[in-house]
């Protein structure tokens, strides 16, 4: 790598942070799926994380750093790109030759949606107060478990989450294969399987996360 950062180096930072975020999202998904195991299991997990402080705090700060750099560099790349192609409107007819997927085309949009979702999400779950009124199930606090369950009981709340996780899935459907290219691995021999794997991964993420609101809305009631 050399300074000042070239466009490719910036891209590789995005790819590296993206890859770390992929790891986080997998861990986060697994953690969240513990909800399916009931209040105790999930709350124990949440408490375990709490017990690990300041370790957890450090991890959260690192995570925040990763998110922020991912967003900072993508924002700068996207801004340059808009300038480079000469504005938003380009050709009178929009009919690309390539077989670019929607996942690819919507990267900045899906990313941006996830960004706004995240701000809300942090206030929504992390800073909600595990013991507060939002955690009450049948009149007494059910901890973080209660917060999540109560939230998803509200269909509007659920729908916003589902849209968000679908965007995350979409983001990753391109993101995973993209990381491989950006990092510069020779993918010529496994290009098709890679694209497929990336899409499947995106789908798993979207499906895995949205299973929770669905579970709460339709099965838990």
């Amino acid at each position: 790598m050399c300074f000042p950062l070239t466009s490719i180096s910036k891209k590789q930072i995005v790819a590296a942070t993206g890859l770390m975020l992929i790891v986080f999202i997998i861990v986060h998904l697994i953690g969240n799926l513990l909800i399916l195991g009931g209040a105790d299991l999930f709350n124990n997990y949440a408490e375990f994380l709490d017990h690990m402080r300041p370790g957890t705090t450090i991890a959260e700060l690192i995570l925040a750093g990763i998110f922020l750099s991912h967003i900072f560099f993508t924002a700068s790349l996207v801004r340059e790109n808009i300038k480079a192609r000469g504005g938003f409107k380009r050709y009178a007819v929009d009919k690309p030759v390539g077989d670019r997927s929607w996942a690819t085309r919507l990267m900045p949009l899906s990313g941006a949606y996830v960004f706004f979702f995240l701000i809300w999400h942090i206030f929504d779950f992390m800073l909600a107060g595990d013991e507060g009124p939002r955690s009450f199930i049948l009149g007494k606090s059910a901890g973080l478990y209660g917060v999540v369950i109560n939230s998803f009981k509200d269909p509007l709340h659920s729908i916003l989450y589902i849209i968000a996780v679908c965007f995350v899935g979409l983001h990753l459907a391109h993101g995973v294969e993209s990381v491989v290219q950006t990092w510069g691995l020779d993918r010529s021999k496994f290009s098709r399987p890679l694209v497929l794997a990336s899409r499947i991964f995106g789908f798993i993420i979207a499906f895995g996360f949205s299973s929770l609101p669905f579970y709460v809305m339709f099965i838990l009631r």
Binding site: I8, A84, R85, V97, G98
Partner: peptide, 21 residues
């Protein structure tokens, strides 16, 4: 690559339209 950036070309986001065209 540095010159490419300086000329005001955009950054690649792996869209693969270039290869098709």
């Amino acid at each position: 690559v540095t010159q490419m950036d300086k000329e005001g070309f955009g950054n690649c986001s792996n869209e693969y339209e270039c290869e098709a065209a």
